[in-house]
């Protein structure tokens, strides 16, 4: 107990617990806005409200745990590999995926895929702009061959934004 008390709260547990509390509350509050009904005749809000409440409580327990020494395996894991978050690499990946979703319908598969794979490839450790461009070009061709030529998916290569 004494050692646990001296320790500073275990940050990953605080964060995980915090996210669970936030999401739990969001679902519970959102659920309460729908018709909750009763245990006998449950409305659409009943289960989300109930589960959201449970998640909130679990989140609070995890936060409490963080002050009492934290979750041991996670702590050891965290000590082993305390690598920094690869912020801009992750951002490139996410941007690439979002770009694909946003433009594939309008621009068509070919240009969207090229831009997306370029953005994503830029995130690699050993890839500069030129290498990323080469990777993107190669992958675009590969994907088009696999999905459009071999699998015959009905995805227009060029979309309506580019004219028919």
């Amino acid at each position: 107990m004494a050692t646990a008390g001296r320790r500073r709260p275990f940050v990953p547990d605080l964060l995980a617990g915090g996210v669970f509390v936030l999401l739990g509350l969001a679902f519970a509050i959102g659920g309460a806005r729908y018709d909750v009904g009763s245990a006998l005749r449950m409305g659409p809000g009943y289960v989300p409200l109930l589960l959201g409440g449970i998640l909130t409580v679990l989140g609070l327990v995890i936060i409490a745990q963080a002050f009492l020494g934290g979750d041991q395996p996670a702590r050891e894991l965290a000590d082993q590999e305390r690598a920094p978050v690869p912020w801009w690499r992750a951002a490139l990946l996410v941007a690439g995926v979002l770009y694909f979703g946003a433009t594939v319908r309008g621009m068509g598969l070919a240009p969207t895929l090229f831009v997306m794979t370029f953005l994503v490839a830029l995130a690699g450790h050993r890839s500069g702009v030129v290498r990323a461009l080469i990777t993107a070009a190669g992958l675009t061709v590969l994907c088009l061959v696999v999905f459009v030529y071999l699998l015959q998916l009905r995805l227009p290569l060029f979309g309506t934004w580019l004219g028919r």
């Binding site: 979002l98 319908r105 309008g106 831009v115 309506t160 934004w161």
Partner: peptide
């Protein structure tokens, strides 16, 4: 939806704004 989707793309990926806008402008 075309306009809307396009605007989303522009907002989402600022670096590609020019490309997407050009595509929107050229849309039939």
């Amino acid at each position: 939806p075309r306009r809307g989707a396009c605007r989303r793309a522009v907002a989402g990926v600022a670096g590609l704004a020019a490309l997407s806008l050009a595509a929107c402008g050229g849309g039939s």
